[in-house]
Design a protein around this nucleic acid. Structure first.
Length: 821
RNA sequence: GCCGAUGUGGCGAAAUUGGUAGACGCAUCAGACUCAAAAUCUGACGUGGCUCACCCCACGUGCCGGUUCGAGUCCGGCCAUCGGCACCA
């Protein structure tokens, strides 16, 4: 029996316990239904769920439940991105054990997720910090290593002093650390990289395949990969025999205007290229550049500086001798680290040349050209010998082609993307499975001996080195090759490595012998719908795409894009700004569960904005949703004795009122189904719930006229339609009505296209495009009848007056526009 | 600077993709029930005009212009906000 009023706490506790016991969402691996993989970006176990999580997982859950009802075999898993710095910081600050700290957080948050009513198959839970997972992270590292896709090199890398570790390029935001926001500096260190640049072109080209991704994310990735096409041109050094400086340029058309050449401060042969008289100044300049932070260095409005090396290059096109300068506006890790300078046609070179009084040669002219101003617009070539008069854009290829024939140039495609730096000098991560042997050098750990376990005997209080280095047992080992003495690599992997493949593990989460079974992965993947925050547009989403392509090339997978459809949900705001602890405007999910129940939280977080847009949490809004659910509940409570699960009626023998009501129900099914299928517009879905509820309340007003078969149809339809959102309430009501099955196992409602139309339509009558009258007319009249009716409409007549009817436009079943003069 | 998104009542937003602008809510106001309050129910709610007897008229989707019988929707030119990239040669 249903209570008279809605008490969510009792209902939700009851079904929480039942679902915990019966595991109704366990995936049936033998099902012959088509598969559907619904995935949320897995959480970091920070301690407590926040409203962003609630929004993310509710969206995915409703999708999973909808697809289940539509007859798909749905995989909807959950896991924990559980390595990372916060656990280690808790260890340093509070003396906690990172593992205990993390696992306790996972326990608490798991309960919170279950209370949210997610239809997750918890038997497939994946936890990246446990050895049965990171064993395979290490194994995958070795596969990439064997393929030459993981390598170690000494390079200037991003260093965060506060986190005491290196960072990937993607983790440096505006020159600051993505985690702690402190300034990042460059350090020369020997570090592990994944060769993501080998996939630059594929990662870019395959964006076109991702029709289920938003343009915002795709453009962000496109910008990050940063493809440009141009040329390498080689300049001989006048003072040094057989020394050439290659430059990369996208403007080969301006090569006749080169008046000097710039190398980056870190350029490798810079001292060789410097004359003895200039050496001291150059060295000083390099030292200064080194000291500068990334933020200072990359500031575009900084005054450009540089010093001459004293040597010169010879422009092979003109024979002109030009000085070589070192200047920090040239970047060592883009192109060749050297730039040909054309002051007249490049703003940066122009500013530099002005400051140091270097010559300028104009080689392009056009309509907007002004004497003495930098000219970067389109135009035609001048002062360029045989290329004079050619359009600048087509001259690029012609000049490069010429350079190629003459042996001092070639075509070149350049990407901005850098290799992914994956080693971290931190404890709480997957150890890199590499040892260093006195005899054999760098050696991979054998696959049989995985996992390389994280040591427990570490001291977190030491400063200046990774805690892992303090272990007495970890470092010393034997070489897998020769059996001699060897030491382990003490770095761990970036947590983004762990999260670059977790979606694959869900297909075969408990496999102890393999990373995953190939057939199972090929069966479930790619992910049909991925849901998560926009903050991963580049980081996680680019890394995962790279991993998928690399593993395909390791012959482990048969597909090359991991996520077919991507939904990036907006932020959850409170009072117009992002919820954050420092602002004190957070809302605790536990409190919402306790006061209103999870169903209200789920309904509200979907109700006010489309999923991709930011969502403003308001107390009044939650209150409103709670009232609505209560209003729905009371309908079933009131009629529980009269509702027939096996209702039956003949549509042809209904009263006008019943017929209209049945039509409204069909219209609601159609609208809701379409809105979910079309980009998951849950806000309008919920509007339709409310409209249907209002219709039902309208229908029951005259109690003596109620047809209980028709009412049962309406109520049971509403119950199923609302069940993906209000999962506890709908289950409670359905079981109280005597159903033997769960509402969540019932198929989705079907609508009849003929019944999903009102019996009469409102004909809009316009005169000269302005609304003048509305007429109630039957469905399906032909155009001439509609025209006749419209012309006879009294208000229309008034506006036509004695003017002449020039034309009448009829839109069937909708509108008539009378054009008069 | 380049790229992407967005712009509609007091607020969140709808609008079958060129056909009634503001569905559905929130807030507000008024009324019913009540000794009273809460809850619930009913009604009003873009702006301006009209004695406004709830009929009607004009205006109205960031701004200016265009196409069309008809534009929130399409085209051209701007403006603003948010986000990404940026001394990338």
């Amino acid at each position: 029996m249903l209570e008279k009023e809605y008490y969510p706490q009792q209902i939700e506790k009851k079904w929480f316990d039942i679902w915990e016991e019966t595991k109704p969402y366990k995936v049936d691996e033998n099902s012959d239904k088509p598969k559907y993989f619904a995935l949320s970006m897995f959480p970091y176990p920070s301690g407590k769920l926040h409203m962003g999580h609630v929004r993310n997982y509710t969206i995915t859950d409703v999708i999973a439940r909808f697809k289940t009802a539509q007859g798909f075999s749905v995989l909807h898993p959950m896991g924990w991105d559980s390595f990372g710095l916060p656990a280690e910081n808790a260890a340093i600050q509070k003396g906690a054990n990172p593992k205990t700290w993390t696992l306790e957080n996972i326990d608490y948050m798991t309960k919170q997720l279950k209370m949210l009513g997610l239809s997750v198959d918890w038997d497939r839970e994946v936890t990246t910090c446990l050895p049965d997972y990171y064993k395979w992270t290490q194994w995958l590292f070795l596969q990439l290593y064997k393929k030459g896709l993981a390598y170690k090199k000494n390079a200037p890398v991003n260093w965060c002093e506060k986190c005491a570790t290196v960072l990937a390029n993607e983790q440096v935001i505006d020159g600051k650390c993505w985690r702690c926001d402190s300034e990042v500096t460059k350090k020369n260190l020997s570090q592990w990289f994944f060769k993501i640049t080998q996939y630059s072109e594929q990662l870019l080209a395959d964006l076109d395949k991702l029709t289920g991704w938003g343009d915002n994310v795709k453009t962000m990735q496109e910008n990050w990969i940063g493809k440009s096409t141009g040329a390498i041109l080689k300049f001989k050094v006048k003072e040094l025999e057989d020394v050439e400086i290659p430059v990369y340029t996208t403007r080969a058309d301006t090569v006749y205007g080169v008046t000097y050449l710039v190398v980056a401060p870190e350029y490798k042969d810079i001292e060789k290229l410097t004359t003895p008289e200039n050496l001291k100044a150059v060295q000083e300049y390099r030292e200064n550049a080194k000291k500068m932070s990334e933020i200072e260095r990359l500031s575009t409005d900084r005054v450009k500086t540089g010093v001459p090396l004293g040597t010169h290059i010879i422009n092979p096109f003109t024979g002109r001798v030009c000085p070589i300068w070192v200047a920090d506006y040239a970047l060592v890790d883009y192109g060749t680290g050297a730039v040909m300078a054309v002051p007249y046609h490049d703003e940066r070179d122009f500013a530099f040349a002005k400051k140091y009084n270097l010559p300028m040669i104009q080689v392009i002219t056009g309509e907007d050209f002004k004497e003495g101003e930098c000219y970067i617009e389109k135009g035609t070539l001048i002062n360029s010998k045989q290329f004079d008069g050619i359009d600048a854009v087509s001259a690029r290829d012609k000049i490069t082609e010429f350079a190629k024939q003459e042996g001092f140039g070639e075509f070149k495609t350049q990407y901005r993307l850098r290799d992914w730096l994956i080693s971290r000098q931190r404890y709480w991560g997957a150890p890199i499975p590499i040892v260093y042997c006195e005899k054999c050098g760098e050696v991979a750990v054998s696959e049989e001996s995985l996992p390389v376990l994280l040591p427990e005997d570490v001291d977190f209080s030491v400063k200046g080195k990774s805690p892992i280095e303090t272990s007495a047992t970890f470092k010393e080992t034997t070489c897998p090759k020769c059996g001699g003495r060897a030491t382990r690599d003490t770095d761990t992997m970036d947590t983004f490595v762990c999260s670059s493949w977790y979606y694959l593990r869900y297909a075969d989460a408990k496999n102890a012998d393999k990373c995953f079974d190939r057939d199972l992965v090929n069966k479930w993947l790619p992910v049909d719908q991925y849901v998560g925050g926009i903050e991963h547009a580049i980081l996680h989403l680019l890394y995962s795409r790279f991993f998928t392509k690399a593993l395909r090339d390791c012959n482990l997978l048969d597909f090359d894009e991991p996520f077919a459809n991507l939904l990036t949900q907006g932020m959850v705001l409170k009072d117009g700004s992002k919820m954050s602890k420092s602002k004190g405007n957070t809302v605790d999910p536990d409190e919402i569960y306790a006061n209103y129940g999870a169903d209200t939280a789920r309904l509200f977080i979907l109700s006010d904005s489309p999923p991709a847009r930011d969502f403003d949490w308001t107390d009044a809004g939650v209150e409103g949703c709670y009232k609505f659910i209560s209003r729905v509940y009371r309908l079933y409570s009131k009629f529980q004795e009269k509702i027939k699960l096996d209702y039956d009626f003949d549509i042809k023998n209904l009263s006008k009122k019943d017929d209209d009501f049945v039509r409204e129900v069909h219209i609601a099914i159609k609208k809701i189904t379409k809105d979910i299928e079309n980009e998951f517009q849950f806000n309008t879905v919920i509007s339709s719930y409310r409209e249907l509820t209002n219709s039902i309340y309208e229908y029951i007003k005259a109690e003596s006229e109620i047809n209980y078969d028709v009412l049962s149809f309406g109520l049971l339809t509403l119950l199923k339609l609302i069940s993906p959102v209000c999962v506890f309430m709908s289950e409670e009501i359905y079981s109280s009505l005597g159903a033997t099955k769960s509402i969540h196992q019932e198929p989705w409602c079907q609508f009849d296209e003929n019944l999903a139309k009102t019996s009469a339509i409102t004909l809009i009558v316009q005169v000269n495009g302005k609304l003048r009258d509305k007429l109630e007319v039957p469905q399906g009249l032909d155009n001439s009848e509609l025209e006749k009716l419209a012309l006879a409409a009294p208000k229309a007549k008034e506006f036509i007056g004695d003017k002449q009817v020039v034309k009448v436009i009829v839109v069937p079943n909708k509108l008539v526009n009378i054009v008069v003069k």
